[in-house]
Design a protein around this nucleic acid. Structure first.
Length: 468
RNA sequence: UCCUCAGUAGCUCAGCGGUAGAGCGAUCGACUGUUAAUCGAUUGGUCGCAAGUUCGAAUCUUGCCUGGGGAGCCA
């Protein structure tokens, strides 16, 4: 494709700073075309903003009639023209086209995206095209802004971004179904004398999986660099069919040496406030759109997150609140059992009406690496419960005492030998440390108000779903 | 995995024992700057799949598949 002169501009920039009489070139896709007798309007979008650029096509353009036939919804075009103040309401500027090139045609009869509202269910069946819609476009711009803000937040605070492995040999938490990875011929598996699968012949010489968390490796790196974070894909093979679960999702996991649970909660709160501020500042148009069309509490919620402190309650106190609640729960409230979705929702949405941090959970329901409190009954774990979303962050102070950690691994029926390197961290210069994990897609859901997690990731993976 | 609701035109749905409908889209035409333009016409379907009940099934029954919502598990 020849380089237009002057070189092409992004539509967001034109709409923001363009001046009348300026000659510009734009490249993008046709959102809609309105033909009138004397001229035609074409709306062009290049993904840089929610708003389109309105282009006026005059019949004096060369081969005007043929051109109009080719400019159908979905077609890609390159247009050079002069910016003019729009005589009609709806936009400050529009473009009077002087040169139009149809780069790629689009057959209006078969193009699946129509000039009308589509259901998200339908858009999921055309995931390769849905990013061209207003809503998904806004979601992915917000997703990008949030990703960038995450790096800014940690980098500004001196955290090092560390790349933890995606392939792993250990199920680090002893929980959660994992997806296996193998180079063995599944139709002709090698067997040992005892009839078991002979993983000795597999690529790594032992069973391998996709990671369910980078936490243990992040702890390794924190023991050298003090403050680190991971931000990458993680995988779960759980048969979860809900609007809040994916088989492949992105997780943010900071890990801080010389830090306790209070420092961990402080970081989680500062983190969420930072991300919300950054997204409101960078994507005001998209956030307005979500507030107007998806969930009219999005903006109030965001300001509430930024301006007000999070509520912090111990698990024990939370149980007391739930026991006194003037309401019937489907699941019983009892000290020692995990909080159910309905309990978490009551706390965050009805009782406190703000993000709520529940901490000091019973030792029996939490993972082995969480640090035992002095009461002998609880561990220094915390969950951040977001109104409307539920658990968005889960974190803890880690058990740094070798003896205690070894006992906990044994108590959960895990093989201590598998954790030799993890235990080594407690042998050589062990320090109190803490961290948390945040499901990135849940954060994007929380930001945008989108109801289904499959609509906040471009290519969702879920049970029986990997078509795009 | 469990509970529940649904699958009819490209999309969103109505029809719920007598042989298929609407709106939108698309196409064509009209139209003094339109904003998901408007107006008119045209186009459009193995009624998710399989078996069964019946003179007759989109409609009733059973099984399966797919999707939504909720739950469990979790992030």
């Amino acid at each position: 494709m020849s380089n237009p002169s002057p070189s092409s501009s992004r539509i967001a920039e034109i709409l923001r700073a363009g001046q009348p009489d300026e000659t510009v070139a734009v490249c993008g896709w046709v959102r809609t075309k309105r033909e009138l007798k004397k001229f035609a309007f074409v709306e062009i979008n290049d993904g840089s903003s929610m708003a389109n650029l309105q282009v006026v096509l005059d019949p004096e353009l060369p081969s005007y009639t043929d051109l109009l036939k080719q400019i159908q919804t979905g077609a890609s075009v390159e247009i050079v023209g002069q910016l003019v103040e729009s005589p009609a309401k709806g936009q400050r500027l529009e473009m009077k086209a002087s040169n139009v090139t149809v780069v790629g045609e689009s057959d209006g009869e078969t193009y699946p995206l129509q000039k009308k509202r589509h259901s998200f269910e339908f858009l999921r069946t055309i995931a390769h095209l849905r990013s061209r819609t207003n809503t998904l476009g806004a979601v992915f711009r917000v997703r990008n802004a949030a990703s960038n803000a995450i790096h800014e937040f940690f980098q500004e605070r001196g955290f090092m971004w560390v790349h933890t492995p995606i392939l792993t040999a250990s199920d680090c938490e002893g929980a959660g179904e994992m997806l296996g990875v193998t180079s063995l011929d599944l139709a002709n598996l090698p067997k040992t004398d005892k009839g078991a699968i002979d993983y000795g012949q597999d690529f790594f010489g032992k069973p391998a999986y996709l990671t369910v968390s980078g936490q243990l490796e992040a702890e390794v790196m924190a023991m050298a660099f003090s403050n680190v974070y991971t931000f990458g894909p993680t995988f779960r093979a759980e048969n979860s069919n809900t609007s809040r679960h994916l088989a492949e999702f992105w997780m943010v996991e900071p890990e801080m040496a010389f830090c306790d649970l209070v420092g961990d909660m402080d970081l989680a709160e500062a983190f969420l406030k930072y991300i919300f501020s950054a997204v409101l500042e960078q994507c005001p148009e998209d956030m307005e759109f979500f507030n107007k069309r998806i969930d009219d509490t999005v903006l109030d919620r965001a300001r509430n997150i930024i301006d007000s402190g999070f509520e912090r309650v111990t698990y024990t106190k939370a149980i007391e609140i739930l026991e006194k609640a003037d309401r019937k729960f489907e699941y019983p409230v009892e000290w020692g059992t995990d909080l159910q979705s309905e309990h978490e929702r009551y706390l965050a949405e009805e009782f406190f009406k703000k993000p709520t941090v529940v901490y000091d959970y019973p030792i029996g329901i939490k993972a082995f690496y969480m640090r035992a409190n002095d009461d002998g009954k609880t561990v220094a774990a915390m969950d951040v419960l977001a109104p409307g979303i539920g658990e968005i962050i889960g974190g803890s102070q880690r058990e740094e005492r070798l003896d205690d950690l070894t006992k906990r691994i044994e108590a959960q029926g895990l093989d201590v030998a598998d954790y030799w390197w993890y235990l080594d961290l407690r042998r050589y210069g062990s320090v109190p440390h803490a961290g948390f994990g945040l499901g990135f897609e849940r954060l994007v859901q929380f930001l945008t108000g989108m109801g289904n997690i499959r609509d906040v990731i471009p290519f969702p993976r879920a049970p029986l779903s990997i078509d795009f």
